[in-house]
């Protein structure tokens, strides 16, 4: 019970701080808008060209936003001099990881919902039937991104050149997630049902389970290192 309360406290704290300061959210929304403008100018109105690159463009937007959001996860603790306080908290540190993961997931999903909405407007796409399946893929893909991202953010929070190191570490590990999400999104946008991309969804599920379990098991060591 105490474990769950501690995880919830961390998630609540992160979301409350973000809701009041809006530091990360404002930056992410602005960044996403900028990305969409650039994509719109680059791709123009050629429907065929759009259909071929849209899934990749959508996930590029998600991943770049995630890199910005996740990289700040533990910097907030350092900026408030609270890192040592979290280190000294008695009990299983993985509760802190779970809380951070939940907070990151919530923040990323808000930004992704916004990006997806703007995407529909900017590129004049009819999501229609693809939406339920797309939501499943986005949720699983985001969990995979956030799971490893939260762990690596803790790992790089105390090193120099962390802004460089964080994406360099994170992106190679995310290859299965990126591959599965882009391929599944492509098929769904072409009108295929979720069942047709079942193999990609299974890969996403497996990656999520592995990432979350490994992160839970190693977070204590990462934090103490």
């Amino acid at each position: 019970m105490s474990y769950a309360r501690r995880a919830l406290a961390v998630a609540w704290k992160d979301l409350a701080v973000e809701r009041r300061s809006k530091e990360t959210l404002n930056a992410l929304v602005f960044f996403s808008l900028l990305l969409l403008f650039v994509f719109q100018f680059t791709l123009g109105g050629d429907r065929e060209r759009l259909a071929a690159v849209l899934p990749g463009v959508l996930w590029l937007g998600f991943v770049l936003s995630a890199l910005l959001a996740l990289g700040r996860t533990f910097l907030v603790e350092r900026e408030h001099d609270c890192w040592e306080g979290l280190l000294l908290a008695p009990g299983d540190k993985s509760a802190i990881y779970l809380g951070k993961l939940a907070g990151n997931l919530a923040l990323m999903l808000v930004v992704e919902a916004l990006v997806l909405g703007l995407f529909v407007v900017f590129f004049d796409i009819d999501l229609g039937r693809a939406l339920p399946g797309l939501l499943v893929v986005v949720l699983l893909g985001t969990l995979g991104l956030a799971a490893v991202g939260t762990l690596f953010a803790a790992m790089t929070a105390n090193v120099r050149a962390r802004e460089l190191l964080f994406p360099v570490l994170l992106l190679p590990v995310q290859i299965p997630v990126l591959l599965a999400t882009v391929k599944a999104t492509e098929a769904l946008l072409l009108g295929e049902p979720l069942g047709a991309v079942g193999h990609w969804v299974k890969l996403l599920l497996a990656a999520d389970v592995v990432y979350v379990v490994v992160s839970l098991l190693t977070f204590d060591v990462v934090l103490e290192a």
């Binding site: 704290k13 701080v17 009041r20 408030h80 001099d81 609270c82 040592e84 000294l88 908290a89 008695p90």
Partner: peptide, 18 residues
């Protein structure tokens, strides 16, 4: 050891927006 300790460090360990 940790449950037995109270630490007042250089930083106050407070979140400004709470």
């Amino acid at each position: 050891v940790r449950p037995l300790l109270g630490v007042v460090a250089h930083g106050a360990w407070v979140y400004d927006d709470l």
